[in-house]
């Protein structure tokens, strides 16, 4: 899944009047598409921006397991259950690739967990919505993973080597997620009236939050210019949002479902779909912690971490004891 680039500290990155020779050389390398690697010199603001972006991305993958995990025990068939398990396991893997990439920048895993658990770090607002029916699992794969792919494919070319490489692995696996979701939606859309209504209801609830995943409109996205120059962000929020709408509306048509937006229709002149205004008040409410499931999600993560402490410590104590024993021999 992915990160929304919502700043937790509102102070913008300060631009000095004249860049130092080091900063100039750094930017020249980025302009020449030479990847930045962990031990290379980098501006402190670049490091901080990436730590925030990659760790938010990692947190999103990990928290993203929760809404889907809700349906593992209630999947309609054994096959669907096995598929959903594999998908949720992938999300855990994606979180781990990303935490490792962030750690190369000098933050520890425990520090990142602490930031998540204390509420200091954010994760994608989409995971604060509930999964009420089985169709929600279809809608998440199709829409939420679809939106994530839109964002992550360009990040494979981002300037920071470990992040770009993690993104390559993630993108390879993400396509399975979207297709399994669409497969669920197709089955329901071709099913009974009740099943079709369930699919439409899921689309109604997930459509707008999925569009919000691309982040605030470009006009309000004050930090974008620097991130673009550093190539840690490669497309603007509105650009990606439009691309997603253009790709997804025909897919809804194929299902015989309609997106919950009366203003959404193909503009013959531009060749793009026009669409209505997003409810940004709702978006900021969810980001600030007032979404339907914010408290539940965070509590689940904190409980998992605290309840697992004795186990982590036990394994470490065992490893220490064994290495002490083999040293003595």
């Amino acid at each position: 899944m992915y990160t929304q680039d919502v700043r937790t500290d509102s102070k913008p990155v300060e631009r000095r009047a004249a860049p130092t020779p080091e900063e100039q050389a750094f930017q020249a390398r980025i302009d020449a598409d030479i990847r930045v690697e962990p031990k290379d010199w980098m501006p402190e603001a670049y490091r901080k921006t990436l730590i925030r972006q990659i760790s938010q991305h990692a947190h999103s993958e990990v928290v993203g397991q929760l809404p889907e995990g809700n349906w593992i025990t209630r999947a309609p068939t054994l096959e669907r259950k096995a598929i959903l398990l594999a998908k949720v396991q992938d999300e855990a893997g994606h979180g781990l690739y990303l935490y490792c990439a962030a750690e190369t920048l000098g933050i520890t895993r425990d520090q990142m967990y602490e930031q998540l658990h204390s509420g200091k770090a954010k994760y994608s607002s989409i995971f604060n919505y509930p999964t009420l029916t089985w169709a929600d699992i279809g809608a998440i794969g199709w829409l939420v993973d679809g939106a994530a792919i839109m964002n992550q494919v360009p990040l494979q070319r981002c300037s920071y080597g470990p992040y770009a490489r993690a993104m390559v692995r993630i993108c390879k696996e993400e396509s399975f997620h979207q297709r399994q979701g669409y497969d669920i939606m197709m089955k329901l859309a071709q099913g009974s009236e009740a099943q079709k209504a369930m699919a439409q209801d899921a689309l109604n609830r997930w459509w707008w939050p999925s569009l919000a995943m691309f982040g605030p409109p470009d006009a309000e996205s004050v930090h974008s210019a620097q991130s673009m120059a550093w190539k840690v962000k490669l497309n603007s929020n509105d650009e990606l949002r439009q691309k997603f709408v253009d790709q997804t509306v025909p897919q809804a048509d194929y299902l015989g479902l309609s997106v919950p937006d009366p203003k959404c229709k193909l503009n013959e002149e531009t060749g793009h779909y026009d669409f209505g205004e997003l409810d940004w008040d709702e978006f900021y409410q969810v980001v600030r912690g007032n979404g339907p499931c914010n408290k539940e999600r965070l509590a689940a993560r904190v409980d998992a971490w605290e309840d697992g402490a004795w186990f982590r410590d036990g394994l470490m104590a065992y490893a220490d004891k064994r290495s002490a024993r083999s040293a003595a021999e």
């Binding site: 396991q89 690739y97 065992y318």
Partner: peptide, 23 residues
């Protein structure tokens, strides 16, 4: 292929199986 945290080598191999060879 990447890195991971584990208490010892045996657990690291087990975790690497899950994290890096799912396909």
């Amino acid at each position: 292929v990447g890195s991971l945290h584990a208490p010892d080598a045996e657990m690291a191999v087990n975790a690497a199986r899950d994290v890096y060879t799912r396909r």
